[in-house]
Amino acid sequence: MLIRFLIVALAILNLGVALWWMTPRPAPATAPDVRETGVATLELVPMDAVGAAAPAVPAPTGAAATPAAAAPAPTPATAPDAARAAATATATPAAAVSAPPPSPSPPQQQCASFGPFPSREQAQAAQAALRADLSRSQLREVQPKAASYRVLTAPAASREEAQAMARRIVEAGFSDYFIIAQGEDANAVALGQYRNREGAERRLATLVAAGFPARIVGNGVEAAASWWLDVAHADTASAADLHKRSGAAQRQALECARLR
């Protein structure tokens, strides 16, 4: 029974809603067009009328029409003058900043060696004579050189004593020896001949450590020690003129990197 009652009630409600929608109702009232005093109204112009005539702007309602003050149109010279002023303002800072003058390049240096001087004092005198034109200078000693070098023991009193010394040297583990038979070094034991002094000095050190006093003797013509003057000078000074003023017999090229 309850379900039947609900179905009948729902049908009655649906019928009532349908009748309400079908009943004619009056159109809603349109709000009156209210115009404010002193305010111009805007009227729409049909699209086909655009271009035929410019729309007229009606005068304000209820008030005297006051013509609006028109903004003055720019004169033809205004735009070019503004562009010229902007260009001038832009170019002024650039003109104020001037490029710095290029720094002068340092003079090119040249290096040379003057010598040989027989003594340190003569090399120092040449250095003092050239000092005003030199940027750097140093004195260099060249050690004497021989064609070859020999390591010798002291000469013995007799041939027999020299032979006894030679046996002792062999028993100590040394080889490459011979006994000198004549000359100012007769009866001395020679223990090797070397082309450079460094090798002879190493041989001498081993002999002395083993208890055999020995010495180094140069063979051939041996030059005396000499001194050289190494200099660095600017290219404004002539190397030939410096050589002449130094009084040196020779002039040799020198890498500036070797000059301390």
Results as ranks from 00 to 15, higher is better:
residue 117 F to H: 03
residue 157 A to Y: 00
residue 119 S to H: 09
residue 105 S to R: 12
residue 98 S to L: 15
residue 122 Q to S: 13
residue 137 S to T: 14
residue 109 Q to H: 08
residue 159 R to K: 12
residue 183 G to E: 05
residue 188 A to H: 02
residue 208 V to I: 06
residue 114 F to S: 04
residue 153 T to P: 08
residue 213 P to A: 08
residue 106 P to E: 14
residue 164 A to I: 05
residue 216 I to N: 00
residue 109 Q to M: 13
residue 196 N to H: 09
residue 170 V to A: 15
residue 98 S to T: 15
residue 182 Q to A: 14
residue 165 M to E: 11
residue 148 S to Y: 12
residue 106 P to V: 07
residue 95 A to R: 15
residue 115 G to D: 03
residue 180 I to H: 01
residue 114 F to W: 08
residue 102 P to A: 11
residue 192 G to T: 04
residue 138 Q to T: 14
residue 178 F to T: 03
residue 197 R to Q: 14
residue 113 S to I: 09
residue 188 A to T: 00
residue 151 V to E: 10
residue 200 A to Y: 01
residue 95 A to C: 06
residue 193 Q to Y: 00
residue 202 R to I: 11
residue 97 V to S: 13
residue 92 T to I: 03
residue 168 R to C: 03
residue 112 A to I: 08
residue 212 F to Y: 03
residue 185 D to S: 10
residue 212 F to N: 05
residue 185 D to M: 09
residue 216 I to E: 02
residue 142 V to A: 15
residue 131 R to M: 14
residue 124 Q to L: 10
residue 185 D to H: 10
residue 120 R to V: 08
residue 105 S to Q: 15
residue 158 S to N: 08
residue 109 Q to E: 12
residue 130 L to M: 01
residue 195 R to G: 12
residue 158 S to V: 00
residue 163 Q to P: 01
residue 150 R to I: 09
residue 181 A to Y: 00
residue 169 I to Y: 02
residue 174 F to L: 07
residue 153 T to F: 06
residue 187 N to S: 01
residue 202 R to D: 09
residue 151 V to F: 11
residue 211 G to I: 01
residue 204 L to D: 05
residue 204 L to Q: 09
residue 196 N to D: 15
